[in-house]
């Protein structure tokens, strides 16, 4: 049998939020179509470092493993991306795994992204329906509008766009591209648009759309290819319009 190929991984570990991070290195047996999830599972099955030290399995967040739930975002070789779609064969070794840096670490690669969901709340990212009882059909929507809304609606709240944004950091409360994109999405919907004003009002609040400084990293890092820069621009346009008209005539 041919000699076994191995994979080298360096992982930034942290036992708890108040503990110091440290690095551990692992050497694992290579398998075809290996992704970062498989690496981490292999470590969990046999948590021994390269030096032979017995350690604990690496904590990480993952669920669907097909890049649609958004859970497994982390920094892989310095870049924010989803672990499930990060194929080992396409990564330079040693593979460096770190938690996202813009969110509080829970443990190891597991971070707390609840801030994003809180911000969705602030932006009123929903279509305010009267109730779930039967009120007939929804509004007619042109196929072209649906084709514009659908890609925006594929956001998986992974947080990669926040991770790569230089404007998102501990000195700023910028909500980030994902959230602003949702404002655009709901302002596009015929019923959602009835409450456009409230949403724009919120997105002009602290940490809102004005905090974007056009570095445009978000659109490059988005695993779903959402036109985030365009979304921010459109929200900007609507916001400024509302601001000026509100000021002049409001």
């Amino acid at each position: 049998m041919a000699e076994k190929k191995t994979v080298l991984v360096r992982i930034k570990r942290q036992l708890a939020p108040d503990q110091k991070p440290y690095w551990e290195e692992f050497e694992l047996t290579w398998r075809p179509f290996m992704n970062v999830i498989i690496l981490l599972r292999d470590i969990a099955e046999r948590p021994v470092t390269r030096e032979g030290k017995v350690t604990t399995p690496v904590a990480f967040d993952a669920n669907c493993l097909e890049e649609v739930c958004g859970a497994c975002a982390m920094r892989i070789n310095g870049k924010a991306r989803q672990a499930c779609s990060a194929l080992v064969d396409q990564l330079e070794q040693p593979i460096r795994l770190e938690p996202l840096t813009k969110f509080p670490v829970v443990r190891d690669l597991f971070v707390d992204r609840s801030r994003m969901f809180e911000n969705l709340k602030r932006m009123k990212a929903w279509v305010p329906i009267d109730g779930t009882y039967h009120l007939g059909e929804g509004p007619r929507i042109a196929p072209e509008v649906q084709q514009r809304a659908y890609p925006l609606s594929r956001c998986i709240t992974c947080g990669n766009c926040l991770e790569v944004c230089p404007q998102v950091n501990e000195r700023s409360d910028f909500v980030g591209a994902a959230i602003i994109n949702q404002v655009r999405l709901f302002n596009l919907h015929p019923t959602g648009a009835m409450h456009k004003r409230e949403r724009l009002d919120a997105v002009m609040g602290p940490g809102g759309v004005h905090d974007c400084a056009n570095a445009q990293n978000c659109v490059k890092a988005c695993p779903k290819g959402i036109p985030l820069v365009e979304s921010i621009s459109e929200v900007n346009r609507d916001a400024i319009r509302q601001a000026i008209f509100g000021w002049l005539f409001g």
Partner: peptide, 23 residues
């Protein structure tokens, strides 16, 4: 504003990101 942003152009050396940092 300069103080509020934290450039990461070395991690993500993309064109617009360079522009951001240079700005």
């Amino acid at each position: 504003l300069w103080w509020k942003g934290k450039s990461n152009v070395l991690d993500y050396p993309w064109m617009a990101n360079w522009m951001y940092t240079l700005q």
